[in-house]
Design a protein around this nucleic acid. Structure first.
Lengths: 201, 201
DNA sequence: CAATAACCGGACCGGGCGGTCAACTTTGCT
DNA sequence: AGCAAAGTTGACCGCCCGGTCCGGTTATTG
């Protein structure tokens, strides 16, 4: 499907790369409403060039988001065959938080349903998480009443929480990931007052 | 301090009230960048009137934020003399989440240091939370290695988490508050990999 | 019931945004 | 080297935003 009709010209490919990098940085610093003009300037490129490569600002965002989600999914896939299922889940969450900390990717979630491709990629990653959770549950590493959806939702909480600390040290998220993960352990085990949601809707 | 120099005229007072209500609703629905024009329309008032009552959009926001924080602080103060310190802390967090769920007040946090008065009010509430946490810790209701700052930071996580569920049932936050609170219990008790932050900075 | 001070409202302003386009430059093939 | 196709650029467009301002309106007071 969608076989690449033509290879990209050398300068175009180079510009595309700097554009993606600049956009990721700019979005990370300024949030979802970083301006296209600033992104272009940061990439050392005219504003028109941005729109040649990405029809819309949202398309640019989608390209970045898909890239990140795919990277996360790959990590998850690999961890599916790790020996300790509980440690694997924790490591996945650590990787996710770490990725979001390098460049604050809170916008990754804010960017809801930008395109069908984003939705699709995200669904793929959700599946992987579901499997990780199931495995951890079977091994008794996490309580039986939490689902993949729960973990997906809680996944970004550490970064969110830390984002309200003025000059936060870069690894502070580890503290809150630890607390939340402790809440997922069987030892915690107080009954949950509400059923888990279905993220497919 | 700041003794009211003149009572407000009847229509002015009425408009001010509708303006605050409309702004709260509009901010809740559209987020921090709801437009002043929309707020004015919703309040059945001209745009100029908004700026007569609140010199700036941020001032309007600050008025709402201060109101909410004060309400929360009052609840906290009351709970300081509750018999069960652990239950009191949980109830405070429940009240906080409930308040944020009625009208999504995520912007409450986003609205960082809008004014000195906001900072001051927030600091007051932080003190109350600190006391609640201390009491709960002394009663053995929560683990010894979590601080007031931890609780303050985790306080808004349930609402945040739920905000990414497409058509979330209104009480879903209870599930995530329960999980996170379980992570605060002594039973969880895995050592935390990072020291707690200082929110005063 | 005036008279006056307080208040209201919406046209208006400057600025920044996402996105377009036609003139110009670069690339890569022959 | 030469030339068509691909790529680049920045001025430009329409739009919406926060904030201003003044002519008209309304509440209050004696």
């Amino acid at each position: 499907m969608t076989a690449a009709p033509r290879p990209l010209r050398a300068d175009a490919a180079r510009n595309r790369r700097s554009l993606l990098a600049a956009a990721a940085d700019e979005f990370a610093e300024r949030g979802l409403d970083a301006s296209v003009a600033d992104i272009a300037r940061r990439a050392g490129v005219g504003k028109g060039t941005v729109f040649r490569h990405f029809a819309t600002k949202d398309d640019l965002l989608a390209a970045i988001v898909i890239d990140r989600i795919d990277a996360l999914d790959a990590i998850g896939q690999r961890l599916l065959s790790a020996p300790d299922a509980g440690a694997a889940l924790l490591e996945f969450l650590t990787a996710a938080a770490h990725q979001r900390q390098q460049r604050d990717l809170s916008f990754l979630q804010e960017a809801g349903d930008i395109s069908a491709e984003v939705t699709q990629t995200r669904t793929r990653m959700f599946d992987t998480v579901e499997k990780l959770v199931e495995r951890a549950r079977e091994h008794g590493a996490i309580r039986t009443d939490v689902t993949g959806a729960d973990v997906i939702l809680l996944m970004c909480a550490p970064n969110y929480v830390v984002s309200y600390v003025p000059n936060a040290p870069p690894d502070l998220w580890q503290r809150y990931l630890a607390i939340i993960f402790d809440g997922l352990r069987p030892a915690a085990a107080h009954p949950l007052p509400y059923p888990a949601p279905d993220l497919a809707g």
